[in-house]
Simulated assay, not measured.
Amino acid sequence: MTADALTAAPPLRCWVPRGVYPPQTDSRLLGRAMRREGVTAWTDVLDLGTGSGILAVEAARLGGRVTAVDISWRALAATWCNALLNGQTLSVRHGDLAEAVPGRRFDLVLSNPPYVPAPDAGPPRGPARAWDAGHDGRQLIDRICDTAPTLLRPTGTLLLVHSHLCDVGATLTRLSDAGLRGKVVDRTRLPFGHVLRSRMAWLNGQGLTADGTTTEELVVIRAEHT
């Protein structure tokens, strides 16, 4: 199915159980970037940190051969169910990012990882596992940047979404150090959600936001081998 045909197709059905990250603005932003990549039946797609699986299912509907990875069994159950709800077939793998697919390489790697800066630098618990990522929000982003070259085929592409709060420039530099050329291809600005509003004083104290700032910019970074 082409991207134009997908636009005309019925909306994807999505079941999101408690404790699994629901599709939001960042999911839609990443989905838009993915649709530009020309996914076909010959495209091997990896969705790292798949959550509800909505992007993995969309990639499958475009025709891709999709592998969805998450460390949460509940997220993988949601992904499997959402694939069935939408009449799609994909593979689910339980594990910690790239460790779930040892030795494999892909044409397209998608990731919408946890990226919200958190006062508690320890491992997040409960629903916060879907968004908290340490003091600078980079606990998973840095690992994805470092391992992406081992996951991509020579002509493969990484699409990574995150907030400006965890330093877009640092991500571009880290990708470059790993041998990938990255650039921002999409961005949008939106009001702080509940989690960020509850942390405004701490974020200001960390220098991650300026006093009075109540909006967040989300970006999609596209990277490929240099």
Rank of each mutant, 00 (worst) to 15 (best):
Pro11Asp: 13
Pro11Ser: 10
Pro11Thr: 06
Arg13Leu: 14
Trp15Cys: 03
Trp15Phe: 15
Val16Glu: 08
Val16Ala: 06
Pro17Ser: 08
Pro17Thr: 09
Arg18Lys: 13
Arg18Cys: 00
Arg18Val: 13
Arg18Ile: 06
Pro22Gly: 07
Pro23Gly: 00
Pro23Lys: 00
Gln24Pro: 00
Gln24Glu: 12
Gln24Ser: 14
Thr25His: 10
Thr25Ala: 15
Asp26Ile: 04
Ser27Phe: 06
Arg28Asp: 01
Leu29Ala: 04
Gly31His: 01
Gly31Lys: 00
Ala33His: 07
Met34Asp: 07
Arg35Thr: 13
Arg36Ile: 00
Glu37Ser: 11
Gly38Ala: 05
Thr40Pro: 02
Ala41Asp: 13
Ala41Cys: 08
Trp42Ser: 15
Trp42Val: 06
Trp42Ala: 15
Trp42Gly: 14
Thr43Tyr: 04
Thr43Ser: 13
Thr43Gly: 05
Leu46His: 02
Leu48Asp: 01
Thr50Cys: 15
Thr50Asn: 02
Gly51Leu: 12
Ser52Val: 12
Ser52His: 13
Gly53Ser: 11
Leu55Glu: 10
Val57Met: 09
Glu58Arg: 06
Ala59Ile: 11
Leu62Asp: 00
Leu62Ala: 03
Gly63Asn: 02
Gly64Val: 07
Gly64Ser: 03
Gly64Tyr: 04
Gly64Asp: 04
Arg65Lys: 13
Thr67Ala: 02
Thr67Leu: 01
Ala68Phe: 09
Ala68Val: 10
Val69Pro: 03
Val69Leu: 08
Arg74Met: 11
Arg74Val: 14
Ala77Arg: 13
Ala77Asp: 13
Ala78Glu: 11
Cys81Asp: 08
Cys81Asn: 04
Cys81Ala: 15
Ala83Tyr: 01
Leu84Phe: 05
Leu85Ile: 11
Leu85Trp: 07
Asn86Ile: 10
Asn86Arg: 08
Gly87Met: 06
Gly87Tyr: 05
Gln88Cys: 15
Thr89Tyr: 02
Leu90Gln: 05
